[in-house]
Write a protein that binds this DNA or RNA. Structure first.
Length: 274
DNA sequence: CACGAGACCTGTTCGC
DNA sequence: TGCGAACAGGTCTCGT
């Protein structure tokens, strides 16, 4: 599911709090319930509980698609993968379907990791670079400009779509936002990265930033039964719009498979360059 | 090393 | 209505 805008939306909600729950920041962890053991990627369950119990949550951040929850000595890293969700819920007697990990807070709320497909994972580490060390730059990193991005692209022979999904190249894009960005930039998804001109590279970078910002401003995308309150799905230009008309030229949007992932594009606005 | 297929999971939707 | 196939926002591993 969640790509950068959805993860950012979740982080923003946890930091801010709202009418239904307080901020997560400052909360003390007084109980831990692991409901699906594989959720804990590292360390083992006993050490996980020992090191997290009675810790205070100080900061919540995002890096790529990871949520980072900082206490004094440890970082809890959470990756939602396809169907995970993280939210605060007033303490209840019974857990909900698909709850995988619960941190019980002193203020009467539970921090709930719920994940129907069980792909999501969490790590508890003292040095986050053990897990995040191979991530590429953040899309909004000010050091990433047209020239730098062009040079990064020119070193890769890979097709641009799978390259944008590669988290070691750029952190945060997934299937939705890469299709949307390539459409805005007018680049065919199968174009080799090193065939993209500097001008097109600049256009691609600004398109990536534009669609991510749109996603964040609309609180992410909510599709299928995985509804999280976002509205960006109503603004999709190509993603899951196979057979519908291109918002720019009216041609039919096509769907192809690239690296086993559905890929949507407009054959007229994103001409095949090879 | 690069690439593609398969694995990990459950739930919904589609086609016959 | 029923049933199997296809598909889903991600990433890792294995084989060629």
């Amino acid at each position: 599911m969640p790509e950068l805008p959805e993860v950012q939306t979740i982080v923003n909600g946890l930091i801010r709090g709202d009418e239904s729950h307080p901020s997560l920041q400052g909360s003390w962890i007084r109980g831990i319930e692991i409901l699906w053991m594989k959720t804990i990627q590292y360390p083992g369950p006993d050490e996980f509980i020992n090191r997290l119990l009675n810790q205070q949550i100080l900061l919540i951040e995002r890096r790529g698609k990871f949520i980072i929850i900082r206490s004094r000595e440890n970082q809890l890293l959470i990756h939602l993968r396809m169907s995970g969700d993280l939210f605060l819920r007033p303490r209840t007697l019974e857990f909900a379907k698909h709850d995988r990990l619960i941190l019980m807070l002193e203020n009467g709320y539970d921090l709930v990791f719920n994940d129907p497909r069980k792909f999501g994972r969490v790590w508890l580490v003292g040095d986050e670079s053990e897990v995040l060390g191979n991530l590429g730059p953040e899309p909004f990193d000010s050091d990433l400009n047209e020239t730098v991005f062009y040079e990064k692209l020119s070193k890769k022979k890979k097709q641009i779509k799978p390259l944008l999904l590669d988290q070691t190249f750029l952190a945060g894009l997934g299937n939705i936002y890469s299709d949307e960005a390539l459409f805005l930039a007018g680049i065919h998804p199968l174009t080799r990265a090193d065939q993209i001109s500097q001008e097109k590279a600049g256009k691609l970078l600004s398109s990536i930033r534009k669609v991510l910002l749109e996603g964040i401003q609309n609180h992410g995308a909510s599709i299928d039964w995985v509804y999280r309150g976002g509205e960006f799905q109503t603004l999709f230009r190509v993603y899951r719009r196979t057979g519908l008309s291109c918002p720019t030229c009216g041609d039919e949007i096509q769907r192809i498979l690239v690296g086993q992932r559905s890929t949507h594009f407009c054959p007229h606005c994103q001409p095949n360059s090879h």
